[in-house]
Amino acid sequence: MPIYFKDWDLVVPGELLAEGDYRAGPGVLKEGNKLYSTTVGIFKLAKGMVNVIALNGPYIPEVGDLVIGEVVDILPPNYVVDIRAPHTALLHVSEASLKPVSFREEDLRSLYDVGDMLLAKVSSFERAFSPSLTCRERGLGKITKGLILAIPPARVPRLIGKRSSMISMIRSETGCKIVVGQNGYVWVVSRSSEDEKLVAEAVRKVVEEAHVAGLTARVMSMLKARKKAGQGASTQP
């Protein structure tokens, strides 16, 4: 059962990764007993499963995904929300808020208007139709403060990290509240806009160096250095 690559190797579509009794994970196509890469990504082998972690790619919704989207239209009784998926998502009024809302357009508009950013969950998705969203949960709904960053959807798993190691490290280092939407929008809230900028810088670094090993440590040392520099500046008269 030969394997032609080792972990963290960069592969491109059509490359023969391994032969034999391996399972094909995401980004891998199995033909007979040969496994081929289907995207540009990082080779990873785990428990007999060959994976290629894509470096780029579209966001395909899944039920239960936490997403951040922009209201682009109101078609009573639905809001049309752009969640960066192939199709725009629909948010029905009955799912729009914890409080009941009438179907009249004025009432819909007073709750969320076109251009508002929403934090929502994907409640159902059949590939044939637009995904449906829900905001009937605590903490979901309109985003009124903070900073929203856009990153490539394929880099979201890297930003969260293994058992959310990366994101919880950034949270504890900066003290910001960070919500990562599966569709590649990141919402950062903090009392200080300096901290928000620091998170933005860290996120940019994660996105840029997503495929280089030892990233969590590098981001941590960067945050520590920045904070030290910031404190030094603030103590000066």
Partner: peptide, 11 residues
């Protein structure tokens, strides 16, 4: 197409 991350059998 490969750069866009669209799955392909081969280049």
């Amino acid at each position: 197409l490969a750069d866009a991350g669209i799955p392909m059998r081969d280049l």
